[in-house]
Amino acid sequence: MTAALALGDDALVLSHRLGEWAGHAPVLEEEVALANIALDLLGQARTLLSLVGDEDELAYLREERAFRNLQLVEQPNGDFAHTIARQLYFSTYQRLLYGQLAAGDGELTGLAAKAVKEVAYHQDHAEQWTLRLGDGTAESHERMQRACDALWRFTGEMFQPVEGLDVDREALRSAWLESVTTVLKRATLTVPDTADTGAWSAGAGRQGLHTESFGRMLAEMQHLHRSHPGASW
């Protein structure tokens, strides 16, 4: 259950962040693309959370500390480069993870088998944009490099153990690093050589410890639901 909750929260929170782009995307075609990804993730979140309990109770009535998502996915959208860097790091991880889960025979196998196709598309979308921003103009290169650097310290958390998640974490990490490195190099970007985790022994998202902006995100997400206790929508 911890595993379904962790992965469900990842999808829920990232979907929410991508939903914030609606009406703000750099080009109309990208409105459609970002919404597609957000909808895929929301679908995954609903399936995963339903394995644990009532999807709405879990999404709307838990306190911040009870969320088990990675800190990476809760990071604010920033500029389009930050959103793409977050997508690249996360979708690469998610595709490799779901690929492993789909090959197994646990309770997440069915979901992973369906989701891995969606996620492969998310990864492709992120890679295409990483190439264009990294190897586009001087400005886009600089922005993309800055985004990759800024989010790097949230990537180590993806390879921490999660209770009930039966995956080969070392294989996951090396495959992730290889995939991301290849894309960044093709995009003429430098792979960050800084630490991939924050220096805080209290832990991170998987332990329920989040970053400052997450509280505000939840306040916005939950306020209407919580203002009408027991109501149905």
Binding site: P26, V27, F80, R132, G136
Partner: peptide, 9 residues
């Protein structure tokens, strides 16, 4: 704000 993205592509 999207101009730099369109230019990059």
């Amino acid at each position: 704000e999207g101009a730099w993205v369109r230019e990059a592509a």
